[in-house]
Design a protein around this nucleic acid. Structure first.
Lengths: 156, 156
DNA sequence: AACAATCTTGAAACGATTACAAAGTTAGTA
DNA sequence: TACTAACTTTGTAATCGTTTCAAGATTGTT
């Protein structure tokens, strides 16, 4: 079990291909090998990967996968409500499974990893009247416990 | 008075060049015509502009301004603590004056304008123990009152 | 005035993403 | 089973925002 699988196990068990296929069906879009692989990668490793990260992870198994397909698929899945796009750092989007309890995100400035955090309720009430809110994103940035530990060790 | 100046007036009065120069000095970096112009544009129009927006606004007055200078300056001012970078949408950064009370942001999905909103206190407490937090960003997305009004009118 | 440090500039390069058009696949229907 | 229309995937080329680089201009200090 590698790091990201270990992280995943903390949160949820892995989704089988049949379950992924059903999710895709239920969302009202057509399934394909690529869509299942991409959704599965995001759902089962809890790494909040970027498009490039997904590409390099899947490339060995799907050598013919093109970046265009990957981007198309990410858009399709996001529009269908299966994925949430994280805009925690500019220049790339990262992807997270949408059908799960709302949460906030922490990105480590040193290692770049993204962690799930709690999300306080009722944040929308901070917005002024008259604004229709359809999404609330709370992002923390800083140093994760692992990187803190490493920097302590390295300074010794 | 154009739109963005009107919006600015709601929040703060305009900063003079002398005040801008003092801010730059106080931040420990050297002043230049370009730095003052760029900081002034962000401080005095409350439009939360992107680099490209700043460039096209300043180009008429500073025809020789290069994009490199603009990006260098934005980085320098941000590092010096005068600007805050907003990562509310991926693909671009937007800029906001930093020395002002903390607040959250709303971006309209239709017109793309960014509005200041309140920021609840104590959000850092949502993060798990062991994470060192150095920034908290809360972003709302949806439709602003103006665009809502327009779409009502257009459907009549 | 002279020197070093800092700034500005344009050209070229880069990474992430999108546009496009062709080829392949699928679901439904005859 | 064969047909058709709709949808997907793919590779190439283009685009957009940003950064790198090296040279020249400006500034602050002696």
């Amino acid at each position: 079990m590698n790091d990201s699988e270990a992280a995943a196990a903390v949160h949820t068990r892995s989704l089988s291909n049949v379950e992924l296929l059903e999710m895709i069906h239920a969302a009202g879009i057509r399934p394909s090998v690529q869509r299942i692989a991409i959704l599965g990668h995001i759902a089962n490793g809890r790494a909040h990967p970027s498009a490039e990260g997904i590409y390099s992870s899947l490339a060995p198994e799907f050598p013919s996968l093109s970046r265009t397909t990957l981007y198309n698929t990410l858009h399709t899945l996001a529009e269908a409500g299966l994925l949430r796009e994280l805009e925690i750092e500019s220049g790339t989007r990262r992807y997270d499974l949408k059908p799960q309890p709302p949460h906030s995100h922490f990105i480590c400035r040193r290692c770049g990893r993204v962690f799930d955090m709690k999300l306080p309720e009722g944040l929308e009430r901070s917005a002024d009247d008259g604004f229709s809110i359809d999404s609330v994103d709370l992002y923390f940035k800083g140093i994760c416990p692992g990187c803190k530990q490493n920097s302590i060790n390295n300074n010794k």
